[in-house]
Amino acid sequence: MRKHFLRAGALVVSLAALLGWLAYTRFDFFVPRLASEEGVVVDRLLRVHFFLIAAIFALVVGFAVYSVWAFRRRADDDTPGAAIHGHGGLEFLWTVIPLGIVLSLSAMGVRDFLFLRRTDADLTVQVQAQQFSWGFVYPEYDIRSPELVVPTGQRVKFELTSLDVIHSFWVVEFRIKEDAVPGMTTYAYVTPRTEGEYRVRCAELCGSGHANMYAPVRVVSPEAFDAWVAEQQAAQQQAASPVARGEQIFQQYCAACHTLDGSPKVGPSLNGLAGRTTTLDDGTTVTVDEAYIRESILDPQAKIVAGYPPVMPATFGQALSEDDLDALVQFLLQAGE
């Protein structure tokens, strides 16, 4: 038995060394690009996890594979296996050692979680989720934007709300994720560290447009951020043309489900809408005019285009101001003409 233990032990140690080395040194292969200080903390513990997985995997598989090979029944051997019933000391050890490991992991988890969730922040961004779009409000600067722009090195507090169903705010490169729940405000904290372009991706199934519920993210230098803020504030002073404003609203609220190039997505394409004759699911036809477009935005279930599911949210009346709605309708009336 001593011989077997030594051999199996050697197998376990070499397997653990190989896998542990891979998990530890090739860590970057396993995780995506990192763009936040909080992500550094997440990745650090994830690396510990990977190392433990490699070690315990090697331990179990090493002994199992060795047993399969060394203790296979030889031909014509009809004797029973060794009459071992158990071993109190071993049971004690393999209860107490794993207990120590998981308690340590929990302690590290608490340490990291408290660090991630500490409430100091340099900048507040209100994230407003709805089917199937994101909006970002910067209360300190009185800016509303379809794009999330954040400066490096500043801890951003995200205040998450939802107009309709549960969504989840996630930027892969930031690592951190938090649900946006209707009826309450939830919080996430991120300190961007790497400039670049990323995406907010909804991580909680929220309906037909869930897969494409994206918003663009730009991490910029503090100077570039200040410039962006000034630019946005100036732009909001001077009213843009309704059509240009409408296009921006389309990109933010509609593009997850509708295209402008004639190809269907979750809903019908919206190019060349004005004057088009459309067949509805009850077989009737309707000619598209301003009143029809307006009705379809505010009360989407009133008329359903044949061949499409009745899944468009009815929350746009809440989300869009009267001016925004006018601008969107103006944009759609001329889109793809």
Binding site: A82, L90, E91, W94, T95, L99, G109
Partner: peptide, 24 residues
Amino acid sequence: LLVAVPTGVKFFNWLGTMWGGKLT
């Protein structure tokens, strides 16, 4: 994370059951 402890106990006892057996 505590669930890992009794689950681990099962695994180690399975290894103990195979150890020294006449496996087919």
